[in-house]
């Protein structure tokens, strides 16, 4: 854990010192503001609640996928367009494990269902973490600092991964049924809340909490935050940023595997292109949030999901463009994103 010494008399000056550290709450207010703005447009209160909870679930899944990618960019300026490969591979591995545990997933027991889901998720994260390690070593490492080549080579990696999925699992669309106890909805009056969406929200919050804890309370987190800001100085202080980056890349890939599993279960179906489908939203999120900012990524994920859900209901014809418009509006307000990381 991080230990910061508080020398004598520092506490006495604490109030003065904290005057210089204003918190930026404005981006946080965007979430309730968007929800309030959508309320009269949606009209029906129960529909509004259902859409909002669906958006939170979708937002959490996007956050799980995007959190690693934003740190990877922040730490080493690596534009990884191959992140979608981890989403897809994670989903397929989870599907395979769930398929072999059909007895558990189809049993009317929440414990067995969750156990199956836990094992599938663990397998997905292990596989995508290992894939991420190999991807960084073989594809990303030779093109450090060369953005154009990174885009080309990581996009190539995504294409290769999708073709390998076709070879291993076949090219047809696969079903990804929810375990029995997670099907259906909880009804509160007129409001229907799908059980799986609640689980997705819970998983997203846990992931956010763990990432926040690691970043704020551990030496590794301190190094990641410092490295995102100025990796050269972290090296000059005596730390191996490259090794740190590999760790972040592997964890980010594993989280993409987790996100892919959740996303496939959310859609209850998957193809090899599942990663490519969601990656556009992921890039919008990390740009909106501020490249390298996990907090910004979290807020951005919720905003993007809310916008997609509300416009999908209110004005389906503009739903596709809505998030691009959201990104343009936010970047006009804050060109570096909601929570820009101070770069040297």
């Amino acid at each position: 854990m991080t230990t910061t010494v508080a020398p004598a008399a520092v506490d006495a000056d604490k109030d003065d010192a904290l005057k210089g550290a204003p918190r930026d709450w404005l981006p946080l207010l965007l979430v309730p503001a968007l929800a309030v703005l959508a309320y009269p447009l949606v009209g029906n209160p129960s529909t509004w609640v259902t859409l909002t909870i669906a958006a939170l679930a979708m937002g959490m899944m996007i956050f799980v996928i995007a959190s690693g990618l934003t740190l990877v960019f922040g730490l080493m300026d690596v534009l990884n367009f191959g992140h979608g490969a981890f989403i897809a591979v994670g989903a397929y591995v989870a599907m395979t494990v769930l398929g072999t545990l059909q007895g558990w997933t189809q049993a009317p027991s929440l414990a067995l269902n969750l156990a199956a889901l836990g094992l599938a998720t663990l397998a997905a994260m292990t596989a995508t973490g290992a894939l991420g390690w190999a991807f960084e070593r073989v594809i990303v490492r030779p093109v450090y600092g060369r953005h154009l080549e990174q885009i080309l080579v990581t996009t190539g990696g995504l294409i290769v991964a999708e073709q390998l999925i076709h070879v291993i699992w076949g090219g047809d669309q696969k079903p990804m049924p929810l375990p029995t106890a997670l099907r259906g909805a909880i009804t509160l009056g007129d409001i229907n809340i799908e059980k799986f969406r609640l689980l997705a929200v819970l998983v997203g919050l846990v992931v956010f909490g763990v990432i926040a804890l690691v970043l704020q309370r551990t030496k590794i987190g301190l190094l990641i935050r410092a490295g995102v800001e100025n990796r050269e100085m972290v090296e000059a202080l005596g730390y191996r940023v490259r090794r740190l980056f590999v760790g972040v890349f592997v964890v980010g890939s594993a989280l993409a595997g987790l996100g892919g599993t959740l996303w496939a279960l959310y859609r209850e179906t998957l193809t090899a292109a599942i990663g490519g489908d969601v990656i556009v939203l992921v890039f919008i999120v990390i740009i909106i949030g501020g490249l390298g900012s996990v907090g910004g990524c979290f807020i951005g994920s919720i905003l993007v999901a809310m916008m997609a859900n509300y416009t999908g209901y209110v004005a389906p014809k503009v739903a596709l463009a809505s998030n691009i418009l959201l990104m343009v509006a936010i970047l006009m307000w804050r060109p570096q994103g909601l929570y820009p990381v101070a770069k040297r």
Partner: peptide, 8 residues
């Protein structure tokens, strides 16, 4: 590191 405290 601007985003880190003096202590950090």
């Amino acid at each position: 590191f601007a985003d880190l405290t003096v202590a950090e």
